[in-house]
Simulated scan of single mutants.
Amino acid sequence: MANDLSDRKTSGRVTILDVAAAAGVSKSTVSRILDERLPRASNPTADRVRQVAADLGYVRDVSAANLRRGTSLTLGVIVPRLTDTVMAMLYESLARACSRRGRSAIVATTDDRPEAVRAAADSLFNRGVDGLVLATTRTDDDFASELRDRGIPFVLALRGDGHSAASLGDDDLGGWLATRHLIDLGHRRIALIAGPEHASNALGRVEGYRRAMAEAGLPVDPSWVVPSAFSIEGGAEAVQGILKLDPRPTAIFAVNDNTAIGAMSVIQRAGLNIPSDISLVGYNDIPLVSHLSTPLTTVRVPFDQIATGALELLLAGSTDEQRIATPTLIPRATSAAPGR
């Protein structure tokens, strides 16, 4: 027992689940015994739980307790960065949805780094938020499970993990709509700026692209699919390799408007015309893209609907429900038949 306790002490933050496991009782029993608001129990089980908690170095998370009681009327929103227009639009939509419910929202940014997500969550906990909306979920990290183990209310937005409560866009459908649009215009060699492989929304759009190509009986050359960051720089870098292909694709679907803008700048600097030399489709319909010199064809994401869904799931205490919002293709001047 002593060695086990020593191991637990050195393995990281001690949770109520650690105390329950070491004491051989349920999580709810530990919570009840260690809750200072309740009368102090005096019996062998309570004594054992308090001793195990002391031996493990357990410190009650007051902020988590406040979250479960839902007392602050404030929600914490964690996004990769607010310089990303998509994330700024999501946060603004969440703030409006909160305001309609008599609540407020505060935001923390992480630069899409898992360790920064944890620090942001701790910071928001310390400010007493009632729950978290996470737009930072990664396929290579399972922070949602950590929150679930601690009993922290949360919901995922834009990016999901397949088992937590989430309000998402139908990214597979959106990728299919963008690609099908280009196919219907007559394109057969369609490249893809695929976004980051750790983001489920990018992966969904990639699947939609592949599904549309397969349904049309069109092959996908591996060299046509290029991962990228969700950024202008990422799109600019990705498209350079695509333009060197022989034969060159006649169209590009970029799974994010920022990457499409980056690609557009490189294409135009290369002396090529959009759309007569190469068509381009983006994703999200951020406000800027309709005002470009050549307005961008894109897929519109209903951010207000996603934000409202996330708030409703969080307030309802859902742990696994999925809300899926339908995107819409917005044809503009950057897509046309090949050679037009």
Rank of each mutant, 00 (worst) to 15 (best):
V155I: 10
S6C: 06
G174Y: 02
Y58S: 06
R300V: 00
V225F: 00
V206Q: 12
R300T: 10
S99Q: 15
I324P: 04
V255F: 01
L173V: 12
A263K: 06
A236V: 02
G204E: 11
L73T: 14
L280A: 07
A251K: 03
A116T: 11
P338R: 01
I193M: 04
P327A: 03
R148M: 12
A270W: 06
V129G: 02
P302M: 10
A236W: 03
L313P: 01
D246A: 14
G175W: 02
A120K: 02
S93H: 00
P249S: 07
G195Y: 03
R118Q: 13
K27D: 09
E215H: 05
L292V: 10
E115P: 02
R269E: 14
A65E: 14
D170M: 09
S26H: 05
T179Y: 01
D320C: 11
T137M: 13
R101Y: 08
R13Q: 14
G169P: 05
A238E: 07
N258Q: 15
R60I: 13
T259Y: 03
I306W: 00
A116K: 13
G162Q: 10
G262I: 08
Y58R: 07
A157Q: 02
D172L: 13
V301G: 03
A119S: 15
G151S: 09
I193R: 01
V25S: 00
D61W: 08
R48N: 12
S42Y: 12
L5F: 12
R50N: 08
R180P: 03
F230Y: 15
G174H: 02
W176M: 09
N273T: 14
R300I: 02
T259V: 11
S63V: 09
L90R: 00
W176V: 05
R37S: 15
V117F: 03
P114V: 04
V155S: 04
G208M: 07
R40P: 06
L182K: 02
P227Q: 08
E197Q: 15
V281C: 09
T298S: 11
R69T: 14
R300F: 07
M87G: 00
D142Y: 00
A119G: 06
R100N: 11
N258I: 09
M264P: 03
G186E: 10
A336K: 04
R101W: 08
S31A: 15
W224D: 07
A116P: 03
L147K: 03
A21L: 11
M89Y: 04
A263E: 08
R180G: 01
A307F: 01
T136L: 04
G241M: 12
G12K: 05
G102Q: 11
D170V: 10
A178C: 09
N284A: 13
F125G: 07
D142F: 04
L75C: 11
R13G: 08
V206F: 05
S167K: 06
